[in-house]
Simulated scan of single mutants.
Amino acid sequence: MGRQGRGSLKGRKRGMGLAAGAVAAAAASTSFFSMGSATVSHSVPEWQTFLFHDAALELSAFDESPLTSAIDLLTEAGFDGGSIASELVARGVPGVSFVMDEMPAEPSEKQAAERFCLAQAIYYEARNQPVTGRLAVADVVLNRADDHRFPSTICGVVFQGVGKDYACQFSFACDGSMDKPREAKAWEQAEKLADLVYRGFRPAVTGFATFYHADYVDPSWSRRYDETQVIGDHIFYRLPDSIELAAADLGMAAAS
């Protein structure tokens, strides 16, 4: 999902990869959303499963990108695709098919850089986490890139705050971690996952989270946000209005 292609396809990509899981951690309260001239009242899980997913499927028809099995994608990349797909479904991520962009044999300099930055985030932040935990970190990066409150590129998100005292959003960008030799196998896996995620494999494993922290710390900011998932050693959070922003991305809006 390179930013070059992500601009016009952002809503569609979010739809296929994220839409039905947008409120995976929400309570079963009633929400009102309007699509076109119709206003529909549904419990959050019903809205999550039906309205949002249907809107995403409609948007997915904008081009002829193929639907690809997540199990096949992961297996071809050397992972246990069946087990990972089962865990994703158990975590509330519906379906295992995703729209994929074909990566050019020779990606542009910008595409290559964005994919590399995503691999760095996966490796340095989550190489010791389960595969779903590594996918979750990648999801947070892309959720931020899709949110106007953060930089609009993957590299911009990953290296936000570099050069400013205590301002790095991802600690590895400032604490010297990148100066150490990489673990070859973990880096190879990070690159493979980054490639899949960059091209459209974006399971909604975090519920639109834009923040996370290790479970052995208790930052004060976490009490201001909505907790969405606990995966491996990480606890994930989203801003309170993330669901409305995601709905707007798919042409839906909260009704007054």
Rank of each mutant, 00 (worst) to 15 (best):
G17M: 15
V44P: 05
Q120D: 10
Q229R: 13
P66A: 13
R115S: 05
A136H: 00
A247T: 08
P130W: 13
G82N: 09
K13I: 08
S108Q: 05
S31N: 12
Q160K: 12
F52K: 09
H148G: 13
G36P: 04
A138F: 06
G133W: 08
E76F: 06
S43Y: 01
G7E: 06
A247M: 12
N128S: 07
H148Q: 08
G156N: 01
K13H: 09
G232T: 08
A38L: 14
L88Y: 11
C117M: 03
D80G: 06
I84A: 06
I231A: 00
A22I: 11
V89G: 03
F116I: 07
V157L: 09
V137S: 07
A247S: 06
A121L: 05
F172S: 08
D179R: 13
L74C: 15
A121R: 02
L74A: 14
A85S: 10
T206K: 12
L74Y: 13
Y166K: 15
I84R: 11
A121Y: 05
Y237G: 00
A28D: 04
W221H: 00
A190V: 02
Y237H: 15
P219V: 02
D195R: 14
S177R: 12
T68M: 15
L142G: 05
L193G: 07
A77G: 05
A25I: 09
V197W: 06
G7C: 05
V131N: 04
T206E: 12
R12V: 11
H42E: 09
A90P: 00
T39M: 10
A20H: 11
S8C: 10
Q111Y: 01
G17H: 14
I235L: 01
T206P: 06
Q4T: 01
